[in-house]
């Protein structure tokens, strides 16, 4: 009797132990040990552990990018890079927390550039920092916004949309990038239309567009390209200064014949879109650490091995340096008042 009791206790202890080890080891756990040091002036990170915070739960695009870049960044720094998922407040929670982090570069975050920068400019609720305060390390990937309509609609070009009446954009809700872009397109192009909110992410929006419940949506080129190639959605416009190489026949918004005020709005919108998916650090990073991180991230993003991997995952990398991001921050600070007002409207309708 007591023997059996003993046995079952032992069995339990064993199982419990096996269980424990992975229970805790939940979500994020990719850690990457470095092999060999990085650049000469980066000794301060050697053997250090850098936490790269993803402000969303695992499985999304930001998470995928962060996990893809982490091992290569670790190699450049000569330390460890560890992913930590911290979702909340549509990505704002993690960035707000980052602001209070020790400014030594051991805690960084990938962020939703358009969402956070737009929110900061609009002084939206929940944004508890100034954009200028963030230390911009660099942008790992752009998010080229495109404007698409349903494959079954009669809209063949932006002119058709401008000429039409009651155009409906699908969006998840105020403050989301698809909302900001749609709102701005309505304003800049003078579209007679409105934004239908409440869709649960771009997937549900896409389905609504394909079904014809709504007429179109704005979204990243990366996530729209499948639907475009399948003919489910038709591209109208790339919201950028130049055309996208994937869609050589689709006009860029900067090509359109716009008056001066509309052009200024367009410029600011493109500046905002340029933030894409940046990696940022807390305010007040010392100069040497910041420049080291910038250099390390750049060589990681531009390393052929990572580029090949990114190509395979169909998650293209497009580097933009921290300096250039700082420039965008300055330019956006001086953006026309109308742009800021438009953003404010997009974040809090009334």
């Amino acid at each position: 009797m007591s023997d059996r009791k003993h046995q079952s206790r032992f069995l339990f202890a064993l199982l419990g132990v096996v269980a424990l080890f992975a229970t805790g080891c939940d979500s994020a756990g990719t850690s990457t040990e470095a092999a060999g040091g990085g650049g000469g002036d980066c000794s301060m990170f050697e053997g250090e552990t850098v936490k790269l915070v993803v402000p969303y739960s695992p499985g999304g695009g930001y998470d995928a990018y962060a996990r893809m870049v982490a091992p290569h960044l670790a190699k450049e720094l000569g330390g460890k890079v560890v992913i930590e998922n911290q979702d909340g407040a549509g990505g704002l929670l993690a960035i707000n927390n980052l602001m209070a982090a020790e400014p030594d570069g051991t805690r960084l975050a990938i962020m939703n550039g358009v969402g956070v920068a737009g929110g900061a400019l609009a002084d939206a609720e929940g944004v508890r920092f100034d954009l200028q305060d963030l230390s911009m390390i660099g942008r790992v990937a752009e998010q080229k916004p495109v404007f698409v309509v349903g494959g079954g609609t009669d809209y063949k070009s932006v002119e058709d949309v401008q000429a039409g009446k009651g155009f409906r954009f699908a969006s998840t809700g105020p403050g989301a990038a698809d909302f900001v872009n749609a709102q701005m397109l309505i304003q800049i192009l003078g579209i007679d239309g409105r934004v239908v909110t409440g869709f649960d992410g771009s997937d549900e929006s896409e389905l609504a567009v394909v079904r014809g419940d709504v007429d179109g949506q704005t979204g990243d080129l990366d996530s729209r390209i499948d639907a475009i190639e399948a003919g489910d959605q038709r591209p109208m416009l790339v919201i950028d200064a130049e055309r996208a190489k994937e869609l050589p026949d689709v006009p860029a918004i900067a090509e359109l014949d716009l008056d001066q005020q509309e052009q200024e709005l367009t410029k600011s919108l493109i500046d905002l879109s340029a933030f894409g998916r940046p990696i940022v650090g807390p305010p007040g990073l010392p100069e040497d650490r910041l420049s080291c991180l910038r250099k390390a991230l750049q060589s990681a993003v531009e390393s052929p091995k990572l580029l090949a991997e990114a190509d395979k995952q169909q998650r293209p990398l497009t580097w933009l340096s921290g300096d250039e991001l700082d420039d965008r921050v300055k330019r956006l600070a001086d953006a026309p008042a109308e742009f800021k007002r438009g953003l404010k409207d997009a974040y809090e309708q009334k």
């Binding site: 080890f21 805790g24 080891c25 939940d26 979500s27 994020a28 756990g29 990719t30 552990t49 930590e84």
Partner: peptide, 10 residues
Amino acid sequence: FVCGELLAVP
């Protein structure tokens, strides 16, 4: 060992 050292999960 597993969570703290090996996998470094939150």
